[in-house]
Design a protein around this nucleic acid. Structure first.
Lengths: 148, 148
DNA sequence: CTCCTTGCGTTCGTTTTTCGAACTCAGCTA
DNA sequence: TAGCTGAGTTCGAAAAACGAACGCAAGGAG
């Protein structure tokens, strides 16, 4: 059981990496953070096949990243996919990807969207910091202590 | 061309998400940040098939995330895979995943490794902040402005 | 020189995923 | 009654991943 076995590895980095490293999952989360909530809209905007979309949504539901929420439309009850608190907590992951993308993968200046702090209008970035002294950290500043 | 077309989408989040969202790529980067550098070691520790490993390494080389660096062993010249500056800059992405994993996916207290700030011994975490006022931001604090 | 070992891939036939078009189904609407 | 719509499910074809075997270059041993 090659890839799937990472889902049970005792590693706080490996497990999320395996979950979000499945094809389409990160792009699906991006779309969700951009406001998409309905099956048809995911399917239309991402051009993902319906069967895979079903599968990925179910995995994220099962993991507690998404929840199905009923809503009314044309007098009918339907369901939409929304982030749970656990799902919303993935925001730093997406922002770290975007911060990296802006620095290293910006195609031109053509971005599909902009982000601003509502209160002050400033930009948004992800950073790694020390929980004690608050210093910004790079990989070189961090000591890795293996457990085996 | 469904998934692959995201590689050229004009979005600083979508492009990295498509690149790192390919199966094995995040787990490969995890292994690299943990210090693995050689083909055989990736293959042994991750149980990835050799052909897919070759492909993923080549994609990361092509994207400039990794570079092949010659080194000596037993008097022979060999090559190892190392992070470029672009690659090292992915650190916040991995740390954001780990911060999330610690909060939401910790299996037990059994972690495979620990991280500490070399200077003060503190813990490590990723956070999102405003580039102007420095406030920590959640998804709710950020205004998304679409471009089309 | 010839054989053996090692690290690093490549090849290739089989199994898994993904694709995409068609189908299903429930709940309105005309 | 028939039609429409959102949300999936099904299924045959195509693509990707798997894994065991093969290739190959550079040393070392005999």
């Amino acid at each position: 059981m090659p890839y799937a076995s990472f889902a049970s590895m005792p590693c706080a980095l490996g497990r999320p990496a395996a979950l979000l490293g499945e094809r389409w999952t990160l792009l699906l989360l991006r779309q969700i953070f951009l406001g998409t909530r309905r099956f048809e809209d995911f399917q239309a905007t991402m051009e993902i096949s319906r069967s895979v979309l079903t599968d990925r949504l179910n995995v994220l539901l099962q993991e507690g990243v998404l929840k199905r929420v009923p809503y009314q439309e044309d007098g009918r009850t339907r369901h939409e996919y929304r982030l749970t608190e656990k799902g919303r907590d993935l925001y730093p992951v997406l922002m770290a990807l975007r911060t990296w993308g802006e620095k290293w993968m910006a195609p031109e200046e053509e971005e599909s969207f902009h982000l601003h702090h509502r209160d002050c209008g400033g930009g948004v970035r992800a950073r790694v910091e020390c929980t004690d002294c608050g210093a910004e950290l790079t990989a070189r500043d961090v000591q890795v202590t293996a457990r085996q």
